[in-house]
Every structure is written in structure tokens, then in C-alpha cells.
């Protein structure tokens, strides 16, 4: 008993002293789960090749990361926030209100969202309108202003050029950032093809969103969970099905699945980088300038991230599926980051 008491007393004492002694000698990164795979690779190399500690990368989602990031300055707030979209004006205002006055934006590259099927199946040639008509909960009829519950069961009904294959799409659930981006970049863009729906955007924004952003729930769209590996396994078992996931998973599994053409562009490095492939989004991270001098290794970490061997055209991040910036943009980002230019929206 006495020994036990001593041990627990010692342990709690230890805990208290350690908390008091805590400064922070590692970089703290939060934010998007899409940027996480790239951020972690840079962090690991940085930790291994320098004498600094390996940065801690939390996967909190873009919005959650911004909240933490903009909470203020000081060692108990993160130094860097990853984002799979640009920072919103409202978020930047929140940052400024909380004393985070100097934020540096770094564009690291692009991520494509692919619609893929089994490697042995026929390659799909889709438009964003096809995707909207096949996956929306309600679709417009030939009468203007009329919506019906999605009647399509075969791709050929959506577009006569497509094969007469059952519509069966495996995709991420609503909690996923990939789903948000897909809905916005593919569905909404397809939805805008109908002039009267486009017109509702200004008259009734809620109505517009609910038409363009709602995915059907009758079983044609199957929520496959956040695990993209699982979607790829299921596509192999079912050659008729299509799956929606990030480009890095297509890149890693190019021997098992292939991407569909969207608006005539195949999901490849070059087409995503040039913007020809329409369903792609920019990836960013944001840096608190106030922390660059405070936290050891910040400057070196930034240098590593924006170096040619990481973010460049043949850098190691491209091995992990990042679509690199073109040379001009890369140089621009590099200069902006080196000069620590403050972001203004």
C-alpha cells in the first residue's frame, strides 16, 4: 500500500512539474485531411534530416483547423494550418480579431478528384452534367421549373452516348472534404447547365443549393465511408460500379482502377495541373508570421516545403500524388513565402 501511494504521488508530481516546464520546441500543424498526406511527408523528411523535432501534424479538417489556427498567437495555438480550399474572408477576419495579424499563404499544388472504375471495365467519358443528372436527388424535367425524383437507373438514360450500365457510384459520406469538393466542383457545375436553376442562385440561394448539392439517397450513390482503400477494393469486385476519391489513391492504384474522362479530360498530372481536368482543387497552407521567430525550425520547415525537391515538378511530393504548380506559379509562391508577404483577400 505504502509503495503504491508513493508511486502515485510521484507520478502526479512528475506530471505537474512537466506541465510547468513545457515550452514548445516542435512545430504544430493542423487542418485538412487532404493535405495531411503531403504535409506529413515533408515533416518526416524535415525531422530526419535536421536536428529539429519532427513537426506534429493533426488531421482536423480545413474548417476545424482554421478555428484553431485563428484562435490567437502563442505557443498553445498551431503555427500552420493546412487547407484544401482558400481561407474564407470570414476566417481571416476572425484571425485578425484574435490578434493573428500577419498570415502568409502558401499554395502547394493541386489535388484532383477522380471518378474511377475497374481497370478491365470500359472507360467512361462523362460530363459534369452527366454526373449531376446521375447523382442528384431531384433532376429537372423538360418543363422549366419542374423537378422530379431522380428517375435514371442506367447511364444510357442520362446520356445516350454512355453504356447501358446500372448507375452505381461509391463515394465518400457528407462528413468528408472530398465529398464537399466533388459536390461543388462537379455536381454544381453540371447543375448550372440548366439556365432556370442557375437563375435561382440569385433569387433563392437555399433552393439553388438544395437542388445542386443534394445527392440521391435511393441506393444509386453508395456511401462507402471515409476509407478510400475500401472503395478501390469494392470497384475490383464490381466492374460496373464507379468510385469517387482523391487523385493520390488513383496514382497509387493505377494497376487496379482507371479514371473516367470528365468533360473530355483524363485525370492525369498534366491535365490537372493545367486546369483542363475540371474537378480539381488547390491545396494551401497558412503560416503565422509571429511564430516564425518563436518556434525553432519554422523557417527551415518552410524552406524544405517550398524547395524544388519537395514541391517542384519532380519533387518527392509528386510521388505521393500531389499535382505540382507550373514553374511560374511555383516561383511566385516561393518569392511570396520567402518575403513573408501578408495575405489580404
Amino acid at each position: 500500500m505504502k509503495a503504491l501511494k508513493k508511486i502515485s504521488l510521484l507520478a502526479s508530481l512528475l506530471t505537474v512539474t512537466q506541465i510547468q516546464a513545457a515550452g514548445r520546441d516542435y512545430i504544430s500543424v493542423v487542418g485538412s485531411s487532404t493535405v495531411y498526406p503531403f504535409s506529413t511527408v515533408v515533416a518526416e523528411r524535415f525531422g530526419k534530416s535536421t536536428s529539429f523535432k519532427t513537426p506534429k501534424i493533426e488531421s482536423t479538417g480545413t474548417g476545424g483547423g482554421m478555428k484553431l489556427f485563428c484562435k490567437g498567437t502563442g505557443i498553445d495555438t498551431p503555427d500552420i494550418s493546412n487547407a484544401s480550399r482558400r481561407i474564407k474572408a470570414s476566417e481571416l477576419t476572425m484571425c485578425h480579431q484574435n490578434g493573428v495579424n500577419h498570415v502568409v499563404e502558401v499554395l502547394i499544388g493541386y489535388d484532383g478528384i477522380v471518378v474511377a472504375n475497374d481497370i478491365h471495365a470500359k472507360t467512361f467519358n462523362l460530363t459534369r452534367k452527366d454526373l449531376f443528372l446521375a447523382l442528384a436527388k431531384e433532376v429537372p424535367t423538360s418543363n422549366e421549373g419542374e423537378l422530379v425524383a431522380n428517375p435514371y437507373t442506367l447511364w444510357s438514360q442520362v446520356n445516350a452516348q454512355l453504356p447501358a450500365v446500372k448507375i452505381e457510384v461509391l463515394g465518400p459520406p457528407p462528413t468528408s472534404g472530398t465529398r464537399d469538393a466533388f459536390v461543388e466542383l462537379a455536381m454544381e457545375a453540371g447543375c448550372k447547365n440548366f439556365p432556370w436553376i442557375k437563375a435561382t442562385k440569385s433569387s433563392d440561394k437555399a433552393q439553388y443549393k438544395s437542388i445542386c448539392h443534394t445527392i440521391r439517397e435511393d441506393g444509386a450513390y453508395i456511401e462507402a465511408g471515409e476509407n478510400d482503400n475500401l472503395i478501390i477494393q469494392k470497384l475490383q469486385k464490381n466492374p460496373d460500379a464507379l468510385g469517387i476519391f482523391g487523385f493520390s489513391f488513383l496514382d497509387q492504384n493505377a494497376d487496379l482502377v482507371k479514371g473516367a474522362l470528365i468533360d473530355g479530360a483524363a485525370p492525369e498530372f498534366a491535365t490537372i495541373a493545367s486546369g483542363e481536368y475540371p474537378v480539381s482543387r488547390p491545396l494551401y497552407f497558412y503560416v503565422k508570421k509571429a511564430h516564425v521567430a518563436e518556434i525553432p525550425g519554422m523557417q527551415e520547415f518552410l524552406n524544405e516545403f517550398i524547395s524544388e525537391k519537395a514541391m517542384g515538378e519532380t519533387g518527392y511530393l509528386t510521388d505521393k500524388g500531389l499535382i505540382p504548380l507550373d514553374v511560374d506559379k511555383f516561383n511566385e509562391v516561393k518569392t511570396d513565402t520567402m518575403q513573408m508577404n501578408n495575405l489580404a483577400l
Binding site: L14, T15, Q18, I19, A22, Y26, S28, V30, Y36, S39, T40, A43, E44, G47, K48, K53, T54, K56, I57, E58, S59, T60
Partner: peptide, 17 residues
């Protein structure tokens, strides 16, 4: 509470990530 994180270094104390 933020333990879903990439942490490559071995933690040295109870306050290390």
C-alpha cells in the same frame, strides 16, 4: 483532443505530442 496526428518522434514525457 487532437491525438489523431502524425507524430514521428517518440514521446519523451506526458506533455509531448
Amino acid at each position: 483532443i487532437g491525438m489523431v496526428a502524425f507524430i514521428a518522434d517518440i514521446p519523451q514525457s506526458v506533455v509531448d505530442p
